[in-house]
């Protein structure tokens, strides 16, 4: 009796594993086209870009294959002069590069910080029940729907020094005495970029956090209300801790996006030293000066920075990005 049961179970198990094997084999073939495509458009170009950063590739030799290996020369190299002074060259000794790094970091931290706070406020607002909530949600989707280049142009017009409505508003309430050339002045260009980015991206943050807020059971708030706990305390003790996972994911996506910013800066504040970022300086070298070697070195450094940053974030925050565990 027992033997037959075991045999039956074994047969069932064998069928099961056979099925599982068949499924895994099918899965491989289902994944193959996508993986092949990603290899050609992402992995291979990334590898080649990093290779270029170790050569003297420029517009003349890049397609003929005549670029020669120069090691770390594009990154950092030194020469001892006759008088004994050491002269440093390469991206890592270039003040323009460090200016771009500083601009990128400054932009990423300030924009994501403000977008998180403002997005949370808007999300809390949309989580309350009031008349016309659907309409408000539709309205805040508009900045998100507008292409970045169009936003840059629209705001460029509004921030225009002579005819811009922003200067006119500020002048009429007496906040400034004379019109400001927002996008042209090195000290205000970053403010202009931040205004446009925050305007465009806060809705996205708000919607992500709203989804997180709606996961919090309503009865939690009700019991807190019955216990007479102050709303501010409820926010810090209940809402914020429960929102943390959604918040962490939203912040990392935004930070990664902010670190690679290019289009808004290129169109809103072209060639401004106050806003040039790592992506912009690298693009200028590659596309405008044909200096593939230096441009690739800069883009590879940006890639490395982002890689380290993501690694640290996942490791320190124990963020479950894939959603596999839930």
């Amino acid at each position: 009796m027992t033997t037959t049961i075991t045999a039956a179970t074994e047969r069932a198990m064998a069928r099961e594993t056979g099925l599982q094997q068949q499924r895994v084999r099918a899965a491989f073939w289902f994944l193959a086209p996508m993986l092949l495509m990603l290899f050609f458009v992402a992995a291979w170009p990334l590898f080649r870009s990093i290779m270029f950063s170790f050569t003297d590739a420029d517009a003349n030799n890049i397609f003929s294959g005549g670029a020669e290996w120069v090691g770390f020369e594009n990154y950092l190299t030194w020469r001892v002069r006759e008088n004994g002074d050491i002269r440093w060259r390469g991206v890592l000794a270039d003040p323009d590069w460090w200016n771009a790094v500083w601009n990128t970091v400054r932009f990423a931290i300030i924009s994501v910080g403000l977008e998180t706070v403002l997005g949370l406020l808007v999300a809390l607002m949309l989580n309350a029940e009031f008349k016309g909530r659907g309409l408000v949600r539709a309205a805040i989707l508009i900045p998100w729907a507008i292409p970045t280049i169009v936003s840059a142009r629209m705001w460029g017009w509004m921030l225009n020094d002579q005819y811009g409505i922003i200067n006119s508003m500020l002048l009429s309430v007496g906040l400034i005495d004379s019109p400001i050339a927002w996008t042209a002045r090195p000290d205000t260009a970053m403010i202009a970029v931040l205004i446009v980015d925050i305007w465009k991206t806060t809705p996205f943050m708000a919607l992500l956090m709203l989804a997180g807020l709606q996961m919090i059971p309503r009865d939690m708030y009700e019991s807190a209300k019955i216990d007479g706990i102050h709303p501010v305390k409820v926010f810090f003790r209940v809402t914020l801790p429960l929102l943390k996972p959604a918040l962490m994911v939203a912040v990392i996506f935004r930070l990664l996006d902010a670190l690679r910013i290019f289009d808004l800066i290129w169109v809103l504040t072209p060639r401004s030293e106050g806003t040039v970022t790592m992506s912009v300086i690298s693009f200028q070298n590659i596309r405008e000066f044909g200096d593939y070697a230096e441009g690739s070195a800069q883009s590879s450094l940006l890639f490395l920075i982002i890689l380290i940053f993501v690694g640290l974030y996942i490791w320190l925050g124990r963020v479950d990005l894939t959603g596999e565990r839930s």
Partner: peptide, 20 residues
């Protein structure tokens, strides 16, 4: 890895993609 591809900076593949 797939998620990482969508988030990495596009500039990092620019010169390699240009060549391709």
């Amino acid at each position: 890895t797939i998620l990482a591809v969508s988030m990495f900076p596009q500039i990092a593949v620019l010169s390699g993609l240009y060549e391709l």
